[in-house]
Amino acid sequence: MSFDGEWSGLRAEAASRMRINSARKGSPGEDSGDLVVRQDDLGRVGHEAFLLHARLKKAGDMTRGAKDDGATAKAASALGAHHFSMGDALTTMATMWNDQLKTLLQACAHISNGLDYTKKSQSHTDKEIGASLTHRNGSAVSVSEISRYYR
């Protein structure tokens, strides 16, 4: 089969599985395809990311040692002192572990902080929308007034 034939077959197969700009009709949150995010959900996921960060930091430091004086660093130093190539390899492994651990910790912190920000930002946006949809006396803006914004 030629490349063009195979490519068009793959595109047709992908197109049959994709739904773009469409969602089932129904009330929001009723598996209608609408994105529904609740403040509690954001808080729980952010908190779990924070807890994961703390557990991962502790577990990662147990392997490496908090100040590079853990069992791995000591073993690498002792092996290197006796001219075993394993000492350098162990040092390289510990360095790579530390770099990957830092990357994972940053990702957990980014998720936690991002969700905290989103939760606060969404709450602020909800308050702004609520304030813009009420008159000075506290009464609700009518539907006809709201519809003028969308013409």
Rank of each mutant, 00 (worst) to 15 (best):
58 K>G: 04
144 S>F: 00
128 E>S: 13
145 E>P: 00
120 K>Q: 13
91 T>C: 05
39 Q>C: 08
23 A>D: 00
68 D>K: 14
80 G>I: 03
48 E>L: 15
24 R>P: 05
28 P>K: 06
123 S>Y: 02
25 K>T: 06
88 D>A: 13
60 G>C: 06
36 V>K: 05
132 S>K: 13
59 A>V: 05
36 V>E: 06
129 I>Y: 03
18 M>I: 13
20 I>A: 06
55 R>W: 07
39 Q>S: 14
109 A>W: 02
120 K>R: 14
61 D>H: 11
112 S>A: 10
17 R>M: 14
82 H>Y: 01
114 G>C: 02
83 H>I: 00
56 L>V: 05
138 G>A: 03
91 T>G: 10
146 I>F: 04
96 M>F: 07
101 L>K: 02
57 K>E: 11
37 V>A: 05
46 G>P: 01
24 R>Q: 12
120 K>V: 11
88 D>P: 00
99 D>N: 13
19 R>H: 07
59 A>I: 09
62 M>A: 11
95 T>P: 00
131 A>H: 08
85 S>G: 15
143 V>A: 09
118 T>Q: 07
41 D>P: 00
84 F>R: 06
75 A>L: 15
80 G>L: 10
132 S>C: 11
116 D>A: 14
87 G>N: 03
83 H>C: 04
107 A>E: 09
105 L>W: 01
52 L>M: 15
63 T>F: 14
24 R>E: 09
52 L>I: 12
42 L>V: 03
106 Q>V: 11
25 K>Q: 10
109 A>R: 08
97 W>E: 07
72 T>F: 05
54 A>P: 01
68 D>M: 12
102 K>A: 14
143 V>T: 09
27 S>C: 07
33 G>W: 11
53 H>R: 14
87 G>C: 05
118 T>N: 04
128 E>C: 14
38 R>W: 09
102 K>G: 08
135 H>A: 04
59 A>T: 02
113 N>H: 12
107 A>D: 07
125 T>P: 00
102 K>C: 09
135 H>G: 02
111 I>E: 00
31 D>A: 15
111 I>Q: 02
130 G>C: 05
29 G>D: 11
112 S>T: 00
134 T>P: 00
89 A>N: 10
123 S>M: 10
20 I>Y: 06
46 G>W: 03
79 L>A: 10
80 G>S: 15
51 L>R: 13
134 T>M: 13
133 L>P: 00
118 T>W: 05
39 Q>G: 03
131 A>K: 13
36 V>D: 02
20 I>D: 01
75 A>G: 01
119 K>N: 06
57 K>V: 02
37 V>D: 01
